[in-house]
Amino acid sequence: MRAARTAVVAAISALTTITAVAGCAEKSDAKDSDAVQVTASDKKCEVSKTSFPAGHVKLAVENKGSKVTEVYVYAPGDRIVTERENIGPGTKTTINAEVKAGTYEIACKPGMKGDGIRQKVSATGKGKAAKRDPQLDKAVAAYRTYVQTQADETLPAVEKFTDAVKKGDLEAAKKAYAPSRIGWERTEPVAESFGDIDPKVDVREDGLEKGQKWTGWHRLEKSLWKTKKITQADKDLADLLVKDLKDWQKRVGTADITPTAMANGAKELLDEVQTGKVTGEEERYSHTDLVDFQANVEGAETSYTLLRPVASQKKPTLTKELDKQFKAVKKLLDGYRKGDGFVSYDTVSKADRKELSDAVNALAEPLSQLAAAVVVK
Rank of each mutant, 00 (worst) to 15 (best):
T69E: 09
W214L: 07
L307G: 10
D358E: 13
R79A: 13
A7E: 13
T149D: 11
E268S: 12
K67L: 11
A373I: 05
E321R: 14
D346P: 03
G65N: 09
A311F: 06
K250E: 12
S122E: 14
A191M: 15
A4F: 02
N361V: 07
A255P: 04
S286L: 08
L240Q: 15
G216S: 04
E355M: 08
P89L: 11
S41K: 01
K92R: 14
N63M: 14
K131P: 00
W248S: 02
A107S: 14
G276P: 00
K167D: 10
A255R: 04
E105S: 13
R308P: 04
V278R: 09
V61N: 04
K250T: 11
D202G: 08
A164L: 07
L269P: 07
A364T: 12
E188N: 10
E159K: 15
L370R: 07
T103S: 14
K175D: 05
D42E: 02
I117E: 02
Y143W: 14
Q274L: 15
K377V: 13
N264D: 12
G90T: 02
Y72P: 03
Y304R: 04
S122A: 14
G168C: 11
V343E: 08
V348M: 01
Y304M: 03
K320P: 01
V278N: 09
Q274M: 15
E185W: 06
Y285N: 13
K327G: 00
P316L: 08
D34A: 14
A7C: 07
W214Y: 12
T319P: 04
L332P: 03
P199W: 13
K120N: 14
K210G: 01
V9E: 12
I18Y: 12
V273F: 02
D42K: 05
G65D: 06
A238K: 05
C45K: 04
